[in-house]
């Protein structure tokens, strides 16, 4: 019976943590002392690259205002498919982990040591359409430049 109660309590506390609202990067920086060493939920887009180092990985997760480094076991980041860059919107993830205002393990970095990463929304390719105006200008302007270069050569020769 004790074991069942203990299991339910654990389950409830975990569920509570997952149910807790996500903290924004702005809040984390604003109330850094309050959140320092606490477990937080932080949501955002994975940007750049996942940098794997000796069984662990660094990823950078950006919300509306800023990006924060997330440190996690290598396997935890394995499910992330899209990383944000010019060609892609990165996966939107929910990171559940311990926030450090100045991480003693990582030279004072402000980071989150992830205990769980959930992919909320998969990223996608960003389509960069060719604007008609730009295409026209890309044809006309080089032609003008070429014409002017020829005129310059003539002017230089005859003056």
């Amino acid at each position: 019976m004790k074991k069942i109660i203990f299991f339910i309590l654990i389950l409830l506390s975990t569920a509570n943590a997952y149910a807790a609202p996500a903290v924004s990067s702005e809040e984390l920086f604003k109330e850094a002392e309050k959140y320092d060493g606490e477990t937080v939920i932080y949501k955002g887009e994975v940007i750049g690259d996942i940098m794997v180092r000796e069984g662990f990985a660094w990823l950078n997760v950006r919300d509306k205002s800023d990006a924060i480094g997330v440190f996690c076991p290598k396997d935890m980041a394995g499910g992330i498919k899209y990383k944000g860059g010019y060609g892609f919107t990165g996966d939107t993830v929910s990171v559940w982990g311990v926030f450090h205002r100045s991480c003693p393990e990582h030279g004072g970095d402000t980071d989150i040591h992830a205990e769980k990463i959930i992919i909320i929304q998969e990223g996608q390719a960003i389509y960069h359409p060719l604007e008609a105006g730009k295409v026209k200008a890309s044809i006309i302007l080089p032609a003008i430049a070429l014409g002017l270069a020829i005129i310059y050569l003539i002017v230089r020769r005859f003056r």
Binding site: Y86, H128, P129, L130, K134, A137, S138, L141, P142, A145
Partner: peptide, 11 residues
């Protein structure tokens, strides 16, 4: 798309 920006800029 980025290449067009530089074609326009350079020209």
């Amino acid at each position: 798309a980025a290449a067009l920006d530089f074609v326009i800029g350079a020209s």
